[in-house]
């Protein structure tokens, strides 16, 4: 039953306008990041390393992944609630937790498809133009990406309980603002302000165990440890946010918004 719900969510995503706008934006933004990878050999020799040329592409994949996760989190059940279609599902002999988990899994299928396309695209470019092996720590890096997105997804899902999608988006943007403020405070000379910066960074579900992209691409094994720490950190946040979302959904009153 959960799988039926997940597949329905996925087919709903396929027919959603916002997803096609998102795909269009990805294609539009990806082109300028792919071109440096392709033409790195034509650039002044030694001025740009092959690994550095790939960095903008991964930064875009990462950023758009967070955007996708947020959209998916916010719309997981909220659109069905707004349309009144949630009632038709809820009237079936399905426990609420099953209903939400089915929809979450459907959304995560969408996120995995996005990651798969991005990785496949990079792999093709990498193998065709660079002809060197993809670093062994790359799967760990991808896992960290996924867990980071999962925490953003959880944030969207949690905020979708508190109001309409616009408000949820605003709240999520507030989290990114907290992260930026955290960075600023951490760099200030006073210790108290630095502690505030640490707290803001923690609350913003961002951390300083960043992806070490250059290190990964250069197969620097010393970067593995911070990645594992990052995976654990984001995973813990994801579990917390998803659990809270399920708890709130379980208590929620379903009212037909169209009647």
């Amino acid at each position: 039953m959960i799988n039926e719900l997940a597949l329905h969510r996925l087919s709903k995503l396929r027919s959603s306008k916002i997803i096609w706008v998102f795909i269009g934006a990805c294609v539009f933004l990806a082109l300028p990041t792919i071109l440096p990878i392709i033409f790195v050999d034509q650039m002044a020799p030694g001025s740009v390393g092959a690994e550095s040329a790939a960095a903008p592409f991964f930064m875009l994949v990462n950023f758009m992944g967070h955007i996708a996760a947020l959209i998916l989190g916010i719309t997981t059940w909220r659109i069905d609630y707004r349309d009144g279609t949630l009632l038709t599902f809820a009237a079936r002999p399905i426990a609420r937790i099953e209903l939400l988990v089915g929809k979450i899994i459907g959304s995560l299928y969408g996120l995995l498809i996005y990651l798969f396309i991005a990785v496949a695209l990079y792999a093709v470019i990498h193998l065709v133009f660079f002809r060197f092996a993809i670093p062994g720590v790359a799967p760990l890096y991808l896992l960290q990406l996924l867990t980071a997105w999962l925490s953003t997804f959880g944030l969207g899902l949690l905020f979708s309980n508190f109001g309409n999608p616009l408000l949820a988006t605003f709240l999520a943007a507030l989290y990114w603002f907290l992260s930026i403020m955290g960075n600023i405070f951490q760099q200030l000379p006073f210790q108290t302000l630095q502690v505030i910066g640490d707290v803001l960074k923690f609350l913003s579900i961002d951390n300083n165990r960043t992806y070490s992209l250059d290190a990964i691409l250069k197969s620097d094994i010393s970067s593995v440890s911070p990645i594992l720490s990052g995976i654990g950190y984001y995973f813990a946040w994801s579990v917390l946010l998803l659990s809270l979302s399920i708890l709130l959904f379980n208590k929620r009153e379903f009212i037909n918004k169209r009647s």
């Binding site: 709903k12 027919s15 009144g84 279609t85 009632l87 038709t88 169209r258």
Partner: peptide
């Protein structure tokens, strides 16, 4: 169950 205003995914 049939709700008062039935609406489902048009796709």
């Amino acid at each position: 169950f049939l709700p008062e205003i039935f609406n489902f995914d048009g796709f």
